[in-house]
Design a protein around this nucleic acid. Sequence first.
DNA 1: GTTGAAGTGATAATCATTTTCATCTAGCTT
DNA 2: AAGCTAGATGAAAATGATTATCACTTCAAC
Lengths: 150, 150
Amino acid sequence: MPRNRPYAGLPAREVALIGRLTQQRANVLKALMAVEGFVGAQALHSRMADDGSPVGLTTVYRTLNAFADAGRADVVRDDNGERLFRYRPGPDHRHYLVCTACGLSMPVDSGPVEDWVEKTARTSGFANVRHTVELAGLCPDCTQEQAPAR
Amino acid sequence: MPRNRPYAGLPAREVALIGRLTQQRANVLKALMAVEGFVGAQALHSRMADDGSPVGLTTVYRTLNAFADAGRADVVRDDNGERLFRYRPGPDHRHYLVCTACGLSMPVDSGPVEDWVEKTARTSGFANVRHTVELAGLCPDCTQEQAPAR
DNA sequence: GTTGAAGTGATAATCATTTTCATCTAGCTT
DNA sequence: AAGCTAGATGAAAATGATTATCACTTCAAC
């Protein structure tokens, strides 16, 4: 393993966003990018340990937060208040339908909401309007697994 | 103070929703209804203590959760992950534009979002889709106070 | 290579929320 | 009116995610 290319394989634009280049951060980012949907910091931490890239939980939190601050990750909260992160390849603003059971996330066409938000902000007299839109439910697979079980 | 009418002054329809009628619950509900915008459980708890209606923090949490479960309170999460509650007079589902500076909340016409959510849920194959829509910004008053200040 | 600022991570601290559990009470039943 | 008991209360402890500490390590500029 190349000792001095910790960020090998990562998109170049990600590197500049989070400060110094270290092996740990590279691993956290790779792990985050490898996940399909949203992941919690703890889940990512133990997943990395299982994959042979153990990193301190503190570092996972720090890197994830830095990445979210840089706008390269979406953050949602699940019902327990836990923050879930998701890698965002592009700079575009998206909304997702997240499965509460398996974490699978499906991008949804949020055009209508964006329009509504924009119009509402304009007519309200409020400045600097930010919006949070979260959809959560049971994905088809998890619905099947659950229904016959009872 | 009437010892045997703890729910005096509360809308009758609220009574049936939360089980047994106790002085403490009545006080929590009255306190919640007296608040303009959203309140956290802790804030409500200390506000009640200041007002001379001390109630255990546990009971505040329990009552607030029961009320939210019954659909009579809206719940949002602030940036710290704290849950904020707001009394909802009618049974209708509303969304609000909340001022980040003063907490003022203004109901917005959420019809378009509801439609969009419903359509998205229907076409996604997901079951049991819940949605969270939060708008936050600076209300006109706070905008004025802030702009000239710098 | 030296050096200093930045990063790491085990551990402890925080903080909102939930559990526990011994005690109390609303609101029937007799 | 007294008794009964499931439901309610609340102080204290537990939980669980996240953040702060701090001694130690490492990146990367010189």
